[in-house]
Design a protein around this nucleic acid. Structure first.
Lengths: 177, 177
DNA sequence: GTCTATAATTTGATAGAC
DNA sequence: GTCTATCAAATTATAGAC
């Protein structure tokens, strides 16, 4: 009985499109066709593209944490992050939504860039918390790990192969040892 | 006496635009205004956007190697790569061209994706060569380092701060030790 | 909440004069 | 090699009927 609202289905379509082609790589008509309505109806739910993607980014951030396997030890938390990022690649070789928007941030509306930054601030803080005690500079280590995960997704997409992600992130937990 | 051809000036403008806003973040008219000509003249030099960006990506790859400080030892070569990537951020907080195109590769013309992949294949091979003997799996280490550099650029752009790049890549050479 | 219709602008691209 | 002029299509967005 999982009833999905039209607004959520629009966000689902937008999420997939942004992760595949970026902010400027899709249109309201694309989303309308994905959902099975008209573009004017999409505007009824989200007045502008900026508002839509800002909301999408917030939802992505919330869901990211909700789907994260909880772990108390440093290695376990790193593994959870690695697994979370890898999951997007398995689903149609998609980029991390905020990795994509972060790369494109120079040409995005301010609200989208702000929401993207919040995603990174939250995951870096959460990851650093998990690394406390396991290394001398947890925040710097967290930044390094997130950077490697985002970059590994770029490599996997450029090569068209999920294995590149696995190779580029092999031994990630050793970094935190 | 450095005479720059119109074609090169178009590529310069396109390079800056792609690194800032991505493949779909600029138009032929944008480039024409940057250079001081009309969009029809841009098409005279590059028939399609796909052809333009493909050629741009090839030029970027060649220039990347030409500008790379040569080093024989592993740590020196890693430092050269770090410095090369960092340079783009200093110039108006730009993303690595191929990092941007790699992220967007799911929505790009085939020739652009192929040229992007070549960039990564070349730098990974070159970096791995420099790491031979310094670690047990040079290619895997090269992938990890390139991933971290690309991801660090995303972080720096999302935060709007070059310092994030420095933090996320701190002790990069230690990885290769 | 969805639709038709449409506005206003931008896009990639072409034809042909100079 | 650059221009004017133009095209066909796509874009974000709005007005108003149902």
């Amino acid at each position: 009985m999982s009833e999905t609202s039209t607004a959520d289905r629009i966000l689902d379509a937008a999420e997939s499109r942004v992760q595949t082609a970026g902010y400027n790589g899709f249109s309201f008509r694309d989303l309308a066709e994905d959902v099975g309505i008209k573009s004017a109806s999409v505007h009824h739910h989200f007045p502008t593209k900026e508002a839509l993607v800002t909301r999408l980014t917030d939802r992505y951030t919330d869901r990211f944490f909700a789907g994260l396997k909880d772990a108390n030890d440093a290695a376990g938390r790193v593994a959870a992050y690695r697994s979370a990022f890898r999951q997007a690649l398995l689903n149609d070789k998609k980029m991390c939504l905020c990795g994509m928007l972060g790369a494109e941030s120079g040409g995005l509306p301010g609200a989208v860039t702000a929401a993207t930054r919040q995603f990174f601030e939250r995951i870096v803080a959460h990851l650093a918390e998990g690394l406390a005690g396991a290394c001398s500079n947890p925040r710097q280590m967290a930044l390094a790990i997130v950077a490697r995960l985002e970059g590994a997704m770029i490599l996997a997409r450029a090569y068209g192969s999920v294995e590149m992600f696995d190779e580029a992130t092999a031994g990630l937990d050793v970094m935190a040892a």
